[in-house]
Amino acid sequence: MDGRVTISELEKVYGEGPERTKAIDDLSFDVEGGEFVSVVGPSGCGKSTLLYLIAGFLDTTSGTIAVDGEPISGPGTDRGVVFQDYALFPWRTVFENVTYGLEESGVPKEERQTTAQKYIDLVDLDGFEDKYPKELSGGMKQRVGIARTLAYEPKILLMDEPFGALDQPLREALQDQLIDIWDDLGKTIVFITHDVEEAVYLSERVLIMTRHPGTKKTVTEIDLDRSGSREDIVTSDAFAQYKNAVWKSLHEETQTEVTL
């Protein structure tokens, strides 16, 4: 399946001389095509840096990132980012935000409109097409963000704590919506979060990163029976065990932070 991300011996250094800090050190990790992987780690572990490196917004210091075997060089429409701060264009309506990527790829107007409408409907925003971002709540803005990124049909979704600013019920609703979208569209998803429960609930694998410089600490496979409701899943023993395992591993890192 398309959308495989291969990260080899990745290193990212910010600044020079005495300002020099290593954000990511010797990280190798593969994400399979169509897989849902969450990345958790203590704050400052470089998880957002990792996401922006995969997106191509930042240059690697050494090592490579490849998509389906092709090393990346800068941003590309095969990858789509969903930003923590939504990053919607405030001067464009919901509809115009969602069509932006299609305009840039030269899709004809009529096709743009059908495609945009399809994804607006998918995130339950029909009726809000002509609203400006400032008229929307945080949860609605992030749904526009998701629709905008899905609309130009990237193979890989890169999500940077997309639900971090939302309250619990809304987070849960959007998590379930995201799972439905993932089931329907079969995208590769790399999902950054600091919320262990969110990571376990959503993903097939959780990558736990070490604290500063960030590198791979452990990878936990999450093999949950997801056929039931949210309540069935989060109250199951298996869910609790996975959550504990990830939490313990992460906690060791935050402990180091405190003793330092």
């Binding site: 941003p75 429409t77 990053a87």
Partner: peptide, 14 residues
Amino acid sequence: VNQSLVWAAQMMGT
């Protein structure tokens, strides 16, 4: 100009 707006446009091919 918000860096994420520029990045968002970049990823969509601007």
